[in-house]
Design a protein around this nucleic acid. Structure first.
Length: 215
DNA sequence: ATATCGATTATCT
DNA sequence: GATAATCGATATG
């Protein structure tokens, strides 16, 4: 009684709806922990659990790109919620954000680290590394630049992509996993408003980026 | 284990 | 012209 799969959507993951993202970025950030980022391209299925994010609060937040207002670069942030804002940084790296709050408000969540679930070989290939031991997995998706590279996320390909549709080739879903041990810390790698605790992570998860500390 | 630095480009001043 | 929501390599403890 096995059913053939005609849809490209993985059977056990269902997409989050737009209402999920149409809220305060702090709320969205907290609830995104434990959700699954899904990439479908050229037959391969890449999935990874979100284990670290940061909230950016829109025009009032000096550390957010949207602080400069609605420009060609930041237009997606000011648009409807649940869309991918992809930017290029330091001449090397792409980073993935999800737009939050209703249309017109620019809050967002930066995805900082993932725990790979499927498609590890594809991710390693995209990253240009080889997996020889379990600890090599840690360099696959721990950090915003790394995870973007592992998922082949670029500005041209993915900026503005709707993340709430399972038919999209990049989306976010949930598989029933319940996040436990959520911790807040200051955001990483910023110079403005660096003291605010807007980074959310799963305590003890090895795939969280940055120096490992005993918490 | 932490520190420093180069890479390389979009965006803003 | 300076800076940036980063990473990897190298140096040093």
């Amino acid at each position: 009684m096995r059913k053939s799969r005609t849809s490209t959507t993985p059977a056990n993951i269902r997409a989050l709806d737009r209402a999920f993202f149409s809220r305060d970025p702090r709320r969205v950030a907290r609830e995104l922990l434990g959700k699954v980022l899904v990439r479908q391209h050229s037959g391969a299925l890449l999935t990874a659990r979100i284990v670290e994010v940061e909230a950016y609060l829109g025009e009032q937040d000096p550390a957010a790109h949207s602080a400069a207002g609605n420009t060609a670069r930041t237009a997606v942030l000011f648009g409807p919620p649940g869309h991918a804002y992809v930017y290029f940084i330091y001449g090397n790296h792409y980073c993935l954000n999800v737009s939050c709050e209703p249309d017109g408000q620019a809050g967002s969540v930066l995805v900082r680290a993932l725990e790979p679930l499927s498609g590890v070989e594809e991710m390693a290939k995209a990253r240009g590394i080889e997996i020889h031991s379990p600890k090599d997995l840690l360099r696959l998706t721990s950090g915003p630049g790394r995870l973007a590279q592992a998922f082949s996320i670029t500005r041209v390909r993915d900026n503005g992509c709707d993340l709430t549709s399972g038919d999209s080739n990049l989306w976010i879903g949930e598989d029933g996993y319940r996040a436990r041990g959520i911790r807040l810390t200051p955001r990483i790698g910023i110079t403005k408003a660096a003291e605010k605790a807007l980074r959310y992570l799963l305590v003890g998860n090895l795939f969280v980026s940055g120096p490992k500390r005993v918490l």
